[in-house]
Design a protein around this nucleic acid. Structure first.
Lengths: 234, 234
DNA sequence: GATGCAATTATTGTATGCAATATGTCCGCA
DNA sequence: TGCGGACATATTGCATACAATAATTGCATC
């Protein structure tokens, strides 16, 4: 439906890239999943060449692991990488709010308010809710007009989805809507320092509130050893 | 000389990537230069396929501009992008020094000291001096063991070379060696706050000390409009 | 039944060929 | 001379073919 001319950018390789990216972020492809070039190409109606190009891009973005002669898999960050990632996010997003504090236009304020309201209304639907929460952060970044900043925040927010998919507590609202509202209020009031603190806390609390170690983080051997013992094996 | 098995990573495409990256950072290929796939492939003894893969990666790193059907050129950041980039760098490198303050091992301290000494000795050779200055920053980042942080700092430092190539004052020592020493002293003393301030100032002063507008930054229209007026045209 | 090896299959790595698009040149025409 | 259009050239976009490597299976052996 948005495909006619919308194939903008570098022809179809970008289309493939977007398709895979969406699939990953929607968790239709979960972390660790294999991504064979020809099945993907077949399914999407393009040749391996284009799939490879897309996979290279995704790997540069950190969404895909590309191991030589072994093929591509959806990235599977460790818990520690996850924590570090949120530290990095915080550093960048502090810059975002410091840049924005007291500088939001009326239009931007309305956009953000509307977004927060949408988040509030979608609280029930877990999947949507997560997506919207991420979008709030990328929306803010966008408003700085700082290209590198935008790019990195987008990347980190995307990867955060992976982290939360792997280590997120099932029923935690990962981004409390009220925190977004407070943040916005600070920004409007031009309280840069306060906004910065709120953002730090906001992201910090995700790592403590929502992240927790998962069994499936251990490798297959460790998992099976338990079953082995139960059966009197190994 | 480092090619036998050192072709590590994804076969030769990484080798191509590294070769091009070096060439760009050494300014053997200056910003705006065309990068035709087949001449590069021919020169490097690989097919266009591998060159393309390398170019895609470089474009993701922001070192190369990739325009559909128009081919690749060495990136040519605007002055404003340059300033924004240094803001972003500062945000990340503050995190670096905060992470490192008071936590450097003896080995790390020695590595950094040696590096600073090397910088001091290379003060005369402008090119080497610039490279070493950059390496100091990536070295610090490396020591945090924070993967995303390392990756972004590396990327931004690399792109800084482009910025300085375009807008750097010819004879400014872009990274004052003494500032690196002060920074290190702070880190050793564990004064996180001070180190953070030093880093901010250090990078800030690059933008004010070393960056200056260049004629060729304005786009062709603006430049020509003056001449047009002078000749009573358009 | 466990172990190691060989043959098979699946999948990636790379080069090449052809189509599509952009760029540059030359010529005719006002 | 200045302008536009057709042709020629260069370069990218994409698919396909083949080679190289890894994963898997089956079999023979102990």
């Amino acid at each position: 439906m948005a495909k006619t001319v919308g194939d903008s950018g570098r022809g179809r390789s970008h289309a493939v890239h977007r398709a895979l990216k969406r699939a990953i972020l929607d968790q239709a492809l979960s972390p660790g999943a294999k991504l064979p070039e020809d099945s993907i190409g077949e399914r999407l109606g393009v040749s391996r060449t284009l799939v490879r190009e897309a996979l290279v891009r995704l790997s540069e973005e950190g969404l895909v692991d590309l191991r030589p002669n072994k093929g591509a898999t959806v990235a599977r960050p460790t818990l520690e990488e996850g924590r570090n990632l949120f530290l990095t996010r915080a550093a960048l997003e502090r810059l975002v709010v410091e840049t924005l504090a007291g500088r939001l236009t009326q239009d931007q304020i309305e956009t953000l308010s509307a977004h927060i309201q949408a988040e509030d209304e979608a609280k029930k639907e877990h999947a949507t809710s997560i997506r919207l929460a991420g979008e709030f952060h990328t929306l803010l970044a966008q408003m700085t007009s700082n290209a590198s900043l935008i790019r990195y925040v987008n990347e980190l927010v995307a990867r955060s989805s992976l982290i939360l998919a792997l280590y997120g507590r099932p029923h935690s609202s990962d981004c409390a809507v009220s925190e977004h509202q407070e943040l916005l209020d600070s920004l409007i009031a031009g309280k840069a320092e306060e906004a910065s603190k709120l953002m730090t806390h906001h992201l910090d609390s995700i790592t403590t509130r929502a992240l927790l170690p998962r069994e499936d983080d251990r490798n297959i051997k460790d998992v099976l050893s338990a079953y082995a013992a139960a059966e009197g094996l190994a």
